[in-house]
Amino acid sequence: MNRITYSKATDVRDAIQEHSKTDKAQYIAGGTNLLDLMKVNVMRPAHLVDINKIGFDFIEQEADGGLRLGASVTNADTAYHQHVQQHYPLLAEAMLSAASAQLRNMATNGGNIMQRTRCYYFYDTSTACNKREPGSGCSAINGYNRMHAILGTSADCIAVHPSDMAVALRALDAVVCVEGPSGKREIPMEAFHRLPEDKPDQDNTLAADEVITSIKLPPSKYAKHYSYLKLRDRPSYAFALVSVAAALNLDEQQHVLEASIALGGVAHKPWRMPEAEALLIGKPATAANFRMAADMLLSTAQGYGHNNFKIELARRAIVRALEQAVNKQATL
C-alpha cells in the first residue's frame, strides 16, 4: 500500500523536524488541496505533518499598527474577523469570493497561498506537465488553455496561481513569515510566488522544510477605496478567470495619492506593476486614466488561443475595479 505516516506536530520546531525526516514529507493544514491532489496521484507524500496545532491559530495586532494572521487560522475566521473586516476589507472581500463556505471553513491561510495551480493537465497524470513531472512537456501551451496565464509565462509552463487571497495580500504588501531548519525569515509577497521560467515545478521561494507561520499586514492604508473584482465562469464556487485587487488613496479633489493594483488569474503569481500604479499618482481618478494604467499593466500580455480574451477582459476589469474602488463609499 501507499503507506503514509502521519504526525501531529506540537510546535513549530517539532513540525520542522518531522518534515526534515524525509524529502517526501508534506505539511498538511486544512487538506482541501493536498488531499485532492493525493487522490489523483499528483502529490504522493510519504509523511504528513499536521500543522494545525502548532500555535499559529491567532490573529493579533502588531506594535506598528499592522496585523498578523496566523497560518493556521481558517479562511472563514480570517475573512469574518472584525479587525480584518474594518481595516483590511479588500482582503476580506477577496477571501469571501473564493471557493465555498464549506471549503473556507477548512482552508487555512498558509494552505491558501500554498495551493497549487488548477491547470487541467497538472491534475491528470496521463498527460504531459512540466510542473508535475519536470521535462515531460507542457500540454497547455498547445492545448486547452482557457484558464491559463497571459503574463510572465515561459515556454515550459503557462499556469496561473489560483488563490484570491494571495492577490489581495499582494496588493496590500503583505509579508510571509516562515521558519525553517536554519531559523526564521520574512518574505515579501512580491518575492513569495515565482514565475515559472524553466522550473515550473517550483511554485514559490519557500526553502526545504520551511513552514509558513504567519502573514504580516502593514498598517492599513486602503480601508476606504478598494475593490476585489473577480470574473469567473460561474458566480460562486469557481476560480477566477481574471481578478483585480484595486486599492486607492484619494485626496479631496479625487486625485490619486496612492494606488495599488494586483491581478489574479493572469500569471504564475499575483501580478503587479509599480510603473502602472505610478502613472496614476497625482492624476484625477477617472476612467480614462485608469485605462492608461490598465494598458500599461497589460502591455506585455500574450494569449495562447483559448485565453486570448483574458487580455481585453483584464483591461476592462482593471478599469471597473478602480471605478468601484473610487465609488466604494457610495455603495456601502
Binding site: Y120, S126, T127, S139, G143
Partner: peptide, 8 residues
C-alpha cells in the same frame, strides 16, 4: 482535448 482525445 484534441492532443489526447480525452475530456480534460
Amino acid at each position: 482535448d484534441k492532443q489526447y482525445g480525452r475530456f480534460i
